[in-house]
Measured scan of single mutants.
Amino acid sequence: MEVRTIKVFTTVDNINLHTQVVDMSMTYGQQFGPTYLDGADVTKIKPHNSHEGKTFYVLPNDDTLRVEAFEYYHTTDPSFLGRYMSALNHTKKWKYPQVNGLTSIKWADNNCYLATALLTLQQIELKFNPPALQDAYYRARAGEAANFCALILAYCNKTVGELGDVRETMSYLFQHANLDSCKRVLNVVCKTCGQQQTTLKGVEAVMYMGTLSYEQFKKGVQIPCTCGKQATKYLVQQESPFVMMSAPPAQYELKHGTFTCASEYTGNYQCGHYKHITSKETLYCIDGALLTKSSEYKGPITDVFYKENSYTTTIK
């Protein structure tokens, strides 16, 4: 009895394709271990004539594949690729409408935090270190965002349907971005203890939790000093293409032309909904596939993004 075979390709990165001759009487799992086709788990399936010449994702289970996976995804987590594939199996079914010149995501599976993050990423200057993220990001900007969303979920250790947080998501993504040249110098002034300067680099240099107003941050924000008295913390120097200011959701007025974009969060910790506000020729609110415009805006804002380049204080 002759062994019926077909020729397929296996890959971990969709760049390096490895030619395989597979036995049609055995499952993919018996031949390769966990195997995925377009995100779908085909591990328990036997090869079919229609699979001839198709590319299958496999887990990096030998040295060659491990090197290829690390170079593309910059992670050695053995569960990463499987999590990416199972997320992709959902995100490829989502709709990605162009809204006001940006790629958004039609609401499904509690994905409003991903839509808000995706919209924000198209408006701030950011370059990702893992080629996987950078490639998928370019495709997302062009309207094909399924891979990018699935990668975000995998890097953030999230599953489809789980509630997510924009600030946490951005923080994970910033860790995989090139923020080497970003720098922030802060000064804390206390009447009792004097003053202390701190220099922050990388992710810490672009994120701040405690106030939404970048102007206020430049002037000074009140913080408790270690001595128990009130101290003032203010920005001395900022070198970065953008800054992200966050605070627990509270009524906040966004003035046209003073910011790049913002995240609105309605609801409580267990259950809520994100919308995205962007400042173009007027203010726009993007909620999944829905767009509304207004000249002014007041609502429960939790993150505001500002364009920056270089700032030095005039406070002496």
Rank of each mutant, 00 (worst) to 15 (best):
T64V: 15
K201L: 10
P60L: 03
G272I: 05
D41V: 08
K183G: 08
P241E: 08
K316R: 14
V236I: 05
L59T: 13
T120D: 02
T19H: 10
K307C: 12
S279V: 07
A108I: 10
N147L: 03
M244L: 01
N49L: 13
S295H: 14
G288A: 12
T5W: 15
G202I: 04
T226K: 15
T10N: 08
T91N: 06
E308C: 12
E281K: 07
N14S: 10
T232R: 11
N49Y: 10
D13M: 05
D303Q: 06
K44A: 07
A231Q: 08
I45E: 15
Y265C: 01
G33M: 00
D62R: 07
I152N: 03
S310D: 13
Q98T: 12
V185A: 06
N49K: 10
L81K: 09
T43F: 04
L290E: 10
H256F: 06
Q216I: 06
H48T: 08
T226G: 08
H51V: 01
I105N: 06
Q134V: 09
N61K: 11
T116D: 09
G272R: 14
V99W: 12
F80W: 04
L151W: 02
A117P: 01
Q134Y: 04
P131S: 02
Y284V: 11
T76F: 14
Y274T: 07
T19W: 07
G257F: 03
T120W: 10
K95M: 13
K280H: 04
K233M: 14
P249S: 09
G228D: 02
N187F: 04
M26S: 02
N110P: 05
T120R: 06
T302C: 14
H74E: 07
S310C: 14
V203H: 15
F148M: 09
H48I: 09
N111R: 01
L283I: 15
W107M: 11
G33W: 00
E239D: 14
Y113T: 05
F56Y: 06
L173I: 10
A115W: 02
L65P: 07
T260F: 06
T116I: 05
Y84E: 02
K298T: 13
V22L: 11
I124Y: 01
Q251P: 03
D13A: 03
V67M: 15
P130V: 11
K92F: 02
V42M: 12
A247G: 06
V236L: 10
A136M: 08
F128E: 00
K127Q: 14
C227F: 05
Q31K: 08
T159H: 15
M207I: 09
A154P: 03
K201M: 13
L186Q: 13
A40W: 13
F174R: 02
F217T: 06
D287H: 02
S213A: 05
G228S: 03
T266L: 07
S25V: 14
H48C: 15
I223M: 14
G267T: 12
A142R: 12
T313K: 14
E281M: 08
K158D: 00
S213M: 08
H18W: 01
A205V: 02
T169R: 02
I315F: 13
E264I: 11
E71V: 08
D38G: 11
D23I: 13
E281A: 05
L37K: 12
L133N: 01
T313C: 13
G299P: 05
T19M: 11
Q20P: 01
V160G: 02
M24K: 03
G210R: 06
C149Y: 05
K218L: 07
D62K: 10
F305K: 05
P78R: 06
L121E: 06
E52R: 12
T43R: 00
N49T: 15
K298Q: 13
V189C: 09
D165S: 14
F148P: 00
T258Q: 13
D63E: 11
I45T: 13
T292H: 10
Y297V: 07
Y137P: 00
G194C: 04
N147V: 04
N187K: 12
Q251Y: 11
T91L: 03
S104G: 12
N129E: 14
T211C: 14
K316M: 14
M26I: 07
A150P: 00
V21E: 10
S86Y: 08
P78M: 09
R139K: 10
E253D: 08
Y297I: 06
K158I: 01
C149E: 00
L133Y: 02
F217G: 05
C182L: 06
K92N: 14
V67E: 12
N309W: 10
T211V: 14
D41R: 03
T232G: 07
A132E: 02
I315E: 13
T116M: 05
C193F: 03
Q20N: 08
G299I: 04
S294C: 14
Y234G: 05
K44H: 10
V99M: 09
E239C: 11
V243T: 06
N268R: 11
S86G: 13
Y36H: 01
V243F: 05
V42P: 00
I15D: 09
S104E: 00
P224Y: 13
C227P: 04
A115Q: 05
T292G: 07
K275F: 00
A136G: 06
S263V: 15
E144Y: 12
V189I: 15
N89P: 02
L163H: 09
E144A: 10
A136R: 03
H90M: 10
T198M: 07
G228C: 08
I152R: 01
K316G: 13
D23W: 13
A146E: 03
L88N: 00
L254Q: 08
N14R: 12
F305R: 05
L37I: 09
E168N: 11
E204L: 05
W107T: 15
Q216N: 05
R141E: 08
I277S: 05
N129I: 10
K201I: 08
A69Q: 10
Y265F: 10
T27F: 13
T19Y: 10
D13P: 01
V304W: 04
H176F: 11
G272L: 02
I315C: 14
T19E: 15
Y28E: 07
P97H: 12
A289L: 06
R83I: 02
S79D: 11
E52G: 10
F148E: 00
G29A: 05
G164M: 02
M209R: 06
K92V: 06
Q197T: 13
H256A: 07
P78L: 15
P34H: 11
D303P: 00
Y96D: 00
T314W: 09
D180H: 10
F9E: 14
F9Y: 14
A136H: 11
F259M: 01
A40Y: 11
V206E: 03
S86C: 10
L173F: 00
A177V: 05
L81E: 01
V189G: 03
T192L: 10
V189T: 09
Y36V: 01
Q123C: 09
N14D: 11
A289N: 04
A136K: 01
M170P: 05
N61T: 13
A136V: 02
T169A: 15
S50D: 15
A140G: 03
N61H: 07
P60M: 00
T27R: 10
K191N: 01
P249V: 14
V243R: 05
A132L: 02
D165N: 03
L254K: 08
Q238I: 02
K44F: 14
T292L: 09
L65G: 15
T226Y: 04
P249K: 04
K201Q: 08
Q237N: 15
T120F: 01
S310P: 08
T302I: 03
A40K: 14
L235C: 05
D62V: 05
L119D: 13
V21L: 13
D77L: 01
V58Y: 02
N178T: 09
R184Y: 06
F9M: 15
P241H: 03
K183N: 08
C261A: 07
S25R: 12
E239F: 08
F148V: 02
K233P: 05
M207T: 09
N111W: 01
K255T: 08
A154S: 06
E168S: 14
K93N: 13
Y138L: 13
E71T: 15
K293N: 11
A250N: 12
T55S: 09
Y252M: 06
C261R: 02
P34R: 05
A140F: 01
L17Q: 09
T103R: 06
V21Y: 15
S104T: 15
Y72M: 13
L212M: 05
T302H: 03
M170K: 00
S240Q: 03
D180Y: 06
V99L: 15
C112V: 02
A40E: 06
G257N: 10
D77K: 03
Y252H: 13
T266M: 03
A150I: 00
W107C: 14
